[in-house]
Design a protein around this nucleic acid. Structure first.
Length: 272
DNA sequence: AAGCACACCTGCTAGC
DNA sequence: TGCTAGCAGGTGTGCT
């Protein structure tokens, strides 16, 4: 589900809602959500009594800095949601696996039907995230050029590779390629300089616009924000999920093909 | 290095 | 109406 814009929306809302909040109690009933811990007690102990101080994001990882020098890391994978509740009395959604109780009575809930997501507490140097590429909203053009120079990978798998640039998933890779007017199978090291610049510009413009519209929620509403509300960027998708529709730029029919075992949506009329 | 197949899960939908 | 196959926003591993 969530890619960079959705995680960034959650990050901003968390910062506004929970800066300074102190964890009173942790309930971790879903073992898979804290799978790095053979036993839930150390996970709870790392959080109980801690004050939430900073709210950062790196790619699709949410990073909450604690006053204990620890960092709570969350990755939502396909179906994870972070929801805030005004009180413990508010009914819990199905598949609520981890609950943080705050001193003021509010709760933060980690809900995840497919249980691919996870939470853990680590040190500020984030050893578990070694190898993750530069954040997609932080990469400048010269750096991006350098990243592509020696890569023989095709553009779609390259954009999805979190070791190169972090934060882009299946929806936004298609929107970025359409915006840059490039086909998925172009090789990174064969792009002309003007095409590299277009791709870099498209990463910035698509992700920034998606953040402004609070991310994309598809029909099954797996992605919702902290308050359970959907995003609005899906209304602006040019290609993703629009198979058979008309390209808003050139009028050709949007096609769907399978690339790297994922659905890929594109326009043969204006993507080269 | 790159690409593929598959694994991890549940839920929803399209098609029979 | 009821069943089943296929599909889903992500990543990790193991194999060519």
């Amino acid at each position: 589900m969530p890619e960079l814009p959705e995680v960034e929306t959650v990050r901003r809302d968390l910062a506004a809602a929970l800066a300074g909040a102190v964890v009173a109690k942790v309930e971790a009933s879903g073992a898979r959500s804290i799978r790095r811990y053979p036993d839930p007690a150390p996970f709870a102990a790392a959080l109980e009594g801690a004050r939430l101080e900073t709210f950062c994001r790196w790619g699709k990882y949410l990073l909450i800095g604690l006053d204990t020098q620890g960092v709570l890391v969350a990755h939502l994978r396909m179906s994870g949601q972070v929801l805030i509740a005004g009180s413990a009395a508010q009914p819990r959604p199905p598949h609520t696996h981890v609950v943080l109780d705050f001193e003021d009575g509010r709760q933060l809930r980690f809900v995840d039907p497919r249980t691919f997501g996870e939470l853990f507490v680590t040190t500020p140097d984030l050893p578990e995230l070694a190898g993750l590429g530069i954040d997609a909203l932080a990469v400048d053009l010269p750096t991006f050029r350098g990243l592509l120079r020696s890569r023989r990978a095709r553009l779609k798998p390259l954009l999805l590779d979190q070791r190169v640039v972090a934060g882009i998933g299946n929806i936004y890779s298609d929107e970025i390629l359409w915006t840059a007017r490039l086909r998925w199978y172009r090789r990174a090291d064969h792009l002309r300089p003007v095409e590299v610049a277009r791709l870099h510009g498209a990463i910035g413009s698509v992700l920034t616009s998606a953040v402004q519209h609070r991310g994309s929620s598809l029909g099954d509403a797996q992605y919702v924000d902290l308050q359970g509300r959907p995003g609005a960027y899906q209304e602006r998708h040019a290609v993703y999920g629009r198979e058979g529709g008309a390209c808003v730029r050139c009028g050709h029919v949007i096609e769907r093909t399978v690339v790297a075992q994922r659905s890929h949506f594109w326009c043969r009329g204006c993507q080269r």
